[in-house]
């Protein structure tokens, strides 16, 4: 009886794992990625560049949205100063349940060249849990796209 029950439970679990709804949601999440950009400094210019004709980010269904409520991924790039910190915290709180944060550029990773400065935070990791790091000062557009595709592969 116990063995039978275990088998049942196992089957149910497996069903949940491979059920149609789960597959569909994973497909949706991996094919249309909404990104909210929190940019400052020169990394913002590189994020602008990946919209352009050379690195057309629309090919993978990457969209940049205007509010954190609509986004799946929040992309923090550039120098985060003490004055910017409360705004970033607000944005992070109004972000949905599944919070994914990508830190772009060495300033966002650990303060970068200005780690000695009093005004600059030593990376976003001090405040929030960071899922992906994109190194570089500023990182190339290919590197940013690569990070987003890593996030996309996570659902396969």
């Amino acid at each position: 009886m116990k063995i039978l029950l275990r088998k049942m439970v196992h089957k149910v679990r497996n069903f949940k794992k491979f059920s149609l709804f789960n597959k569909l949601t994973n497909w949706v999440k991996s094919t249309s990625i909404n990104i909210y950009c929190f940019t400052s400094g020169c990394c913002g210019n590189e994020i602008l560049a990946i919209l352009g004709p050379l690195y057309d980010s629309e090919r993978w269904g990457i969209n940049f949205v205007s509010s954190p409520e609509r986004a799946d991924v929040i992309m923090v790039s550039g120098t985060i100063t003490e004055k910017m910190k409360p705004i970033l915290e607000d944005l992070y709180n109004s972000f949905g349940n599944e919070k994914v944060l990508i830190a772009v550029g060495s300033c966002a990773i650990n303060g970068g060249p200005f780690y000695k400065s009093d005004f600059v935070l030593k990376g976003v990791k001090e405040i929030f849990n960071v899922d992906l790091y994109v190194p570089g000062c500023p990182p190339r557009p290919e590197a940013i796209i690569n990070a987003i595709l890593k996030y996309k592969d996570h659902f396969k």
């Binding site: 497909w27 949706v28 094919t31 249309s32 352009g52 004709p53 057309d56 629309e58 090919r59 993978w60 269904g61 969209n63």
Partner: peptide
């Protein structure tokens, strides 16, 4: 705009609208 548009979701991105 000399870009390609949606490309990798279905055949030439035909399922992109559905997924969005």
């Amino acid at each position: 705009q000399s870009r390609r548009g949606p490309l990798h979701t279905g055949f030439h991105g035909i399922l992109q609208t559905l997924s969005q």
